[in-house]
Design a protein around this nucleic acid. Structure first.
Lengths: 107, 107
DNA sequence: ATATCTCATATCCATTTGGCTATGCATTGA
DNA sequence: TCAATGCATAGCCAAATGGATATGAGATAT
């Protein structure tokens, strides 16, 4: 039960947080206000969720003036991939080079 | 935010439940008592967690006499794969036949 | 300078969650 | 038949969680 793994699973368990992450995966850089409309919760709640996602390594933030742009760190999904791979116990055959795989995920 | 998807993510968020599922993925059919030692919690708690895992479609139970054998339904991981695929936006290329994939997961 | 805007932190609160013990119902063994 | 085993359900409780509002600190615009 790795610490990071636990943080990732826990972070993605909440629908609001998953929604935020999904938004960032689709839309790229977005400010907190930009995420606000879709999220359906108040701004402080969005900030709080983003903090949790960040702690799990799922998002990255970049400060620009008074704005804070958040973006998805899709490489963090490797944690999910790894775990699922291990549980399924068979993907390894197809993905014999996970690092290369992750590089392609960045595109 | 599909209902099943939410149940799966939520079910796997708890370390104890993940532990139970992992055990079942490695060990195959196991009774509740068989899961008890590893779980580190009381029997009723194990039963409760198994119920949640079952509701999420992650495990299956088979009654045999006074025993109840639980087993992992690894196909349920397809929910994770689907979501991650969508977020990562690239696996599709390699997995153009997910059904075939899932069949192989059963082995 | 002052008001406005963006965002984070601080409280606070209701609900959910994850654990426990107690218990009951089958099923099996003596 | 009666005790023991396997398992689920019922309560119970402390802690965690997800939400809201209030507020403050920077940054920008007027």
């Amino acid at each position: 039960m790795s610490q990071l793994q636990d943080a990732v699973f826990r972070a993605l368990a909440d629908p609001t947080r998953r929604g935020l992450f999904e938004h960032l995966c689709r839309q790229g850089d977005t400010t907190v206000v930009g995420l606000l409309a879709d999220a359906g919760v108040s701004q402080p709640v969005v900030s709080k969720h983003l903090k949790i996602l960040k702690a799990a390594g799922l998002v990255h933030d970049r400060h620009e003036g008074r704005y804070t742009y958040y973006s998805a760190k899709r490489e963090a999904l490797a944690t999910l991939v790894d775990w699922t791979t291990e549980m399924a116990g068979f993907w390894q055959d197809r993905f014999n080079d996970l690092d290369d795989l992750l590089k392609r995920m960045d595109q």
